[in-house]
């Protein structure tokens, strides 16, 4: 039994996964987290620092880390990379003026060694706004098709209405489960 197998077995027992939620400021990361957890979303202030929530979902214990996306905080993102099972990249689909920033930041994360095994979910958030770009347009703008190093999926969603948040989370959990937890 190799060390990896032992580690896998240990994780399997706990069924615990660590999700890191990043994205530019104003993308809606905290709103997604709170909506997913069933909390009030009307009083959210821009995140100075980070939020962490542990919640049960389909028998899994999800530790979701939501780190502020302000330019001055992005240099601290690296402190949260360790043992991340999935990266959730949140995009403000209506923020057409900063898509190139968004693309640049995302691709700089994907070359990080400590995120190399992580599943990538891209949330095309704010689909409730009529001026938002579609998931396909975001996929092209962020050049997601060039990503060969990570399992990825883009999911359109709206944190305000809650639409498709569960779909995305279900995919993340399934993808991690099929990767990490060995099936007996």
């Amino acid at each position: 039994m190799g060390l990896l197998t032992i580690l896998k077995k240990m994780k399997q027992k706990e069924k615990e996964v660590r999700l890191l939620m990043l994205g530019l400021d104003n993308a809606g990361k905290t709103t997604i987290l709170k909506k997913f957890n069933g909390e009030d979303i009307d009083t959210i202030s821009p995140t100075l620092g980070f939020n962490i929530k542990t919640l049960e979902h389909r028998g899994f214990k999800l530790n979701i880390w939501d780190v502020g996306g302000q330019k001055s905080l992005r240099s601290y993102w690296r402190n949260y990379f360790e043992s991340t099972d999935a990266l959730i990249w949140v995009v403000d689909s209506a923020d057409r003026m900063r898509l190139s920033d968004c693309k640049k930041e995302l691709h700089s994360l994907l070359v990080e060694e400590r995120l190399s095994g992580a599943t990538l979910l891209v949330f095309a958030n704010k689909q409730d706004l009529p001026g938002s770009l579609t998931a396909r347009e975001i996929r092209e703008a962020l050049d997601l098709d060039s990503i060969k190093t990570h399992h990825w999926l883009i999911q359109d969603c709206s944190a305000v209405t809650g639409a498709n948040l569960l779909n995305g989370m279900d995919w993340v959990v399934n993808d991690i489960a099929s990767r990490i937890f060995t099936m007996d």
Partner: peptide, 10 residues
């Protein structure tokens, strides 16, 4: 150059 994608209608 910084407006990669045409802005929304409004």
């Amino acid at each position: 150059d910084d407006l990669v994608i045409e802005l929304a209608a409004c």
